[in-house]
């Protein structure tokens, strides 16, 4: 049986791959493998060590850590005992956490994508992106929200931690191209 009568690199090849993975057993196996690879790239243990170093450097700052998936946000929340907001967080608790962050009662926050739209995020002077999607708009919005120095002494900083030699490298490059293009134009 020929399961390779489509080319994943051609136009619509990826869509064909996704379609096939729902009913073709081999396609399904490939899909599961791809999900695992992405998961590993996103949550690489190394990233936590890098984050560890950043947090040591910035523990006196006001820091927001961004992740692209909920699981990783919760992992970080547990590992570094940092308040966490995801789309699963109840409104009451989200409001409370943001308010405490605003008043300075909390100095750190980890969140998945929910802060992107419609939520008034208190100012922070350090942003750390642990993994993300290639969306240009989302990235620019995140930057805009982070780049607010809280005092005159220090500039705001944004870090992005990516895993070398994975799809993330490509995604990150493409994303930054997007941002500089829009800044020039």
């Amino acid at each position: 049986m020929d399961n390779h009568d489509f080319d994943i690199w051609k136009e619509r090849g990826y869509q064909e791959f996704l379609k096939r993975s729902s009913y073709d057993p081999q396609g399904r196996r490939a899909f599961v493998a791809k999900q695992r690879a992405e998961e590993i790239a996103r949550t690489a243990e190394k990233k936590l060590d890098t984050l560890d170093n950043l947090l040591k450097r910035h523990h006196d700052d006001r820091t927001i850590i961004f992740t692209a998936n909920n699981d990783f946000a919760y992992d970080i929340s547990k590992e570094f005992v940092v308040p966490c907001i995801t789309h699963q967080t109840e409104t009451d608790e989200r409001t409370e956490i943001l308010e405490r962050f605003r008043t300075g009662e909390y100095s750190m926050l980890v969140t998945s994508q929910v802060l992107d739209e419609g939520i008034d995020v208190p100012a922070a002077n350090v942003g750390i992106i642990l993994s993300g999607s290639a969306s240009k708009r989302q990235y620019a919005q995140r930057l805009g929200r982070i780049l607010r120095p809280t005092d005159d002494r220090q500039p705001a900083r944004l870090y992005e931690i990516i895993t070398d030699n994975t799809k993330e490298q490509y995604v990150s490059t493409r994303r930054r191209q997007g941002v500089s293009t829009s800044a020039d134009g």
Binding site: L48, D52, H59, V81, Y106, S107, M108
Partner: peptide, 18 residues
């Protein structure tokens, strides 16, 4: 936990001399 941790940051994986 968060109230306690906020007073004790940084919480680290690899202990330092600090």
């Amino acid at each position: 936990l968060f109230q306690k941790s906020n007073k004790t940051y940084p919480i680290v994986r690899q202990p330092t001399l600090g």
